[in-house]
């Protein structure tokens, strides 16, 4: 699992995850993800290249969203693959962390 970031206009941070967000993947990114979500106010998590997601990965995403919300910010998820989106929706995560499939809409949502 790889994590990279891109700082966008308007103070938006895009966090791009690549690979399997399983137990090993979540363990590989947890520290950096929590450092980022603990300090940024507008976060778009790009899931387009995440091929797998299970409960430990969902834990990572929810923990991050709570951290962003905790200091008054907003976090959304961008473009999960079909099966990954099904896991998110089955867990009810879409009601907690908005899911967008359009990058511009995702960026607008966290800037608002």
């Amino acid at each position: 699992m790889d994590l990279s970031t891109e700082e966008l206009d308007g103070g938006v941070t895009s966090i791009v995850l690549v690979g399997r967000l399983d137990i090993a993947g979540a363990g590989a990114i947890d520290l950096r993800f929590s450092a980022l979500t603990g300090s940024r106010k507008a976060v778009v998590v790009d899931l387009a290249q995440v091929s797998f997601l299970a409960s430990m990965g969902i834990r990572t995403l929810v923990t991050g969203a709570k951290a962003v919300r905790g200091h008054g910010g907003k976090m959304v998820l961008l473009s999960p693959e079909e099966n990954v989106e099904k896991a998110l929706k089955t867990a009810g995560i879409d009601a907690l962390i908005p899911i967008h499939h359009d990058r511009a809409a995702a960026i607008a949502a966290v800037m608002g």
Partner: peptide, 22 residues
């Protein structure tokens, strides 16, 4: 119980639930 808000979200506890759904 699926949480209504991020603030309420108990982190974890979803594994068995997901397994039963998939």
């Amino acid at each position: 119980t699926l949480p209504a808000t991020i603030e309420d979200a108990a982190v974890g506890g979803l594994g068995v639930f997901l397994m039963r759904k998939f």
